[in-house]
Design a protein around this nucleic acid. Sequence first.
DNA 1: TTCAATACTGTATATAATTACAGTTATGGA
DNA 2: TCCATAACTGTAATTATATACAGTATTGAA
Lengths: 200, 200
Amino acid sequence: MENLTTRQQEIFDFIKKEIEFNGYPPTRSEIAKVFGFKSPNAAEDHLKALKKKGVLNIISGASRGISINKEDIGIPVIGLVSAGGPILAQENIEKRIPSSQNILSHGVDFYLRVKGDSMIEAGILENDLIAVNKKAQIKKGSIVIARINDEVTVKTLKSISPELVILQPENSNYSDIEVNPKVEELSFEGTCVGLLRDFA
Amino acid sequence: MENLTTRQQEIFDFIKKEIEFNGYPPTRSEIAKVFGFKSPNAAEDHLKALKKKGVLNIISGASRGISINKEDIGIPVIGLVSAGGPILAQENIEKRIPSSQNILSHGVDFYLRVKGDSMIEAGILENDLIAVNKKAQIKKGSIVIARINDEVTVKTLKSISPELVILQPENSNYSDIEVNPKVEELSFEGTCVGLLRDFA
DNA sequence: TTCAATACTGTATATAATTACAGTTATGGA
DNA sequence: TCCATAACTGTAATTATATACAGTATTGAA
């Protein structure tokens, strides 16, 4: 997918929102009206551009025949996180899971595939997908996605202070991880707000 | 919601399927064509009936202005199962979770809220939602939703033969349940194909 | 500097789509 | 028996919609 221009992204987001809200896509005129275009053809041009860039599909002749390509809907699933870059970098995205907005009570920014068995006593198994909210407040007792020296890990946050953060695995075979944020690089990618398991 | 007639249910299901597949609702003519109506007005009549029964909404004047009422989309979540009736009876439906079709690799007929801790060693905790497929083959080793003498339970199917079915809890504090289908009433409501947990 | 792409205005038209009106047939109550 | 509901056919008109064509202005890359 080529990158969209600011304007194109706006149009695209509007279409997406309309589909979600109304249950059907907008017409050219409706787009034009919302964006203040004096001609429906401005919308037509945008649709053509968006189609060309591969983010949506237009069924010729059909009214409201706009559909958003599946890959562009949905919440990204992060498999292995490559070192260095941001967690949501394109190369980390394993696939996408359709909207699912209302499935969980919190917003989900991405899903993270669980590696290892360090959380089994919290009912989190290997290969489960953890639903992560990036903005939810990081607090004691919640399950957090932390990045320590560029390595991503999922643990319960046992305690947090300026010079000592304790991350607790939920598996009696493992011991707590103690990090001094002033010495080691520590950041929080988000909080676990849900879990998805697929018995494939 | 009043009950739909067979025909109305067919039309409704078709509309739902179209929205999911195409991303936008069908026109009257498209409905008529699929069902073999010679007049688009037959579809119009059906839409009016469906609207009257409250399962969908029609935006007058808008092409493809059909939207399905949120309560009628989605997969039902079953909380407590009342004795006697079928598991999917209206009174058992706690809420509905939007489509999510492609979230799990198997089809999901309903979600069942887990009571108790008998499956914690399989990573299934109390209040988790188990995704259930009604038609998937019941086989040894899979987690099944069984009904024994009208009581619904989730267990691993350890062994199955005409006179002895062994259901195994995944919790060392509990012991296996042995059922003779010839003596006790035993039926399978489905197989567990996934799990959903919401950290509310 | 020339060209393609972006971002529109303005006009026009074929056709897609909604939807009313007038019927027909069958069914199952009241 | 009468009437409402369901499930259609058939016709037709209004309006909603897609979409082509002809422009204009701006920008950034070749």
